[in-house]
Amino acid sequence: MNLERVVFGFFIILTLSLNYAFVAGGAEMAAQPNVWILTLTIIVNLVAIGLKLGDRSQTGALLLAAGLVAGLLLITARIVWIVAEPVGGGGPGPGDMANIVSIATGALVANVVATVILVGDTLLSRR
């Protein structure tokens, strides 16, 4: 078993799971999605990107590209959250939260693509 692949797979799947956990909170729910889940998703995604740097394979390039797209969208969602949050706290309003969740959903798509690529590469690889 290749420990490097295990660790990278762990971070890819963890990023996907955390991203889904944030998006599942949704803009329609009375309670807002948790900002800490979004922040943790960004951190885990950045670790996954760091693990893929230096991989010169075509699959590695696609995984890096998907990770960069997801990272850019997640960071954008967090910036929108920071800008939209009122001075007194309380979190962004419903319209802003809908924008944040929409951006995070785009990152979720990129994470699904990365996971599909990873699973496909694993299935095609020889022992």
Rank of each mutant, 00 (worst) to 15 (best):
S102H: 01
A48N: 07
I100Q: 04
A70Q: 04
V6R: 14
G90H: 08
M97E: 07
G120I: 00
L64G: 07
A104I: 00
N45P: 03
N34A: 10
V116P: 04
E4G: 14
A70Y: 00
L18W: 06
N99R: 01
V113Y: 09
I12D: 04
T15P: 04
G90D: 04
I103G: 14
N34F: 05
N111A: 14
L123F: 14
I49K: 05
L14G: 00
I79G: 03
L14N: 04
V83D: 13
A104H: 00
W81C: 05
G25A: 12
G120F: 00
I49F: 07
A107L: 00
G60C: 13
L73G: 06
L63E: 12
A77Y: 00
T115N: 12
I103S: 13
V23P: 00
N45R: 01
L63G: 07
N2W: 03
I103K: 03
F10E: 09
N19C: 15
V119W: 04
M97S: 03
A98P: 00
V83F: 09
L123Q: 10
L16C: 00
Q58T: 14
G88W: 06
G91E: 09
L18D: 07
V112E: 05
S57R: 03
L108K: 03
L108S: 08
L63S: 09
A30W: 12
V101M: 01
A77P: 06
T39I: 08
N45T: 14
A104K: 00
N111S: 15
F11E: 10
F10D: 11
P94Y: 09
G26V: 03
D121Q: 10
I42E: 09
T41K: 02
M29T: 15
F11K: 06
V113N: 01
R5H: 13
R56A: 12
N99L: 15
V119C: 04
V87C: 03
S57P: 04
R56Y: 06
S17G: 12
V112F: 15
A21K: 13
A77T: 06
D121M: 10
S57W: 04
L124F: 09
T115A: 15
D55C: 05
L64C: 07
I12A: 15
V83S: 11
L62D: 10
D55S: 10
W36D: 14
V69I: 14
A84F: 02
I82P: 00
G91R: 06
L118S: 13
I12V: 13
R127A: 10
G120N: 05
S102W: 00
L46Y: 09
A27V: 01
N111E: 13
L73D: 11
L46E: 10
T41W: 02
Q32E: 10
A114W: 03
V23D: 01
I12E: 11
I42Y: 04
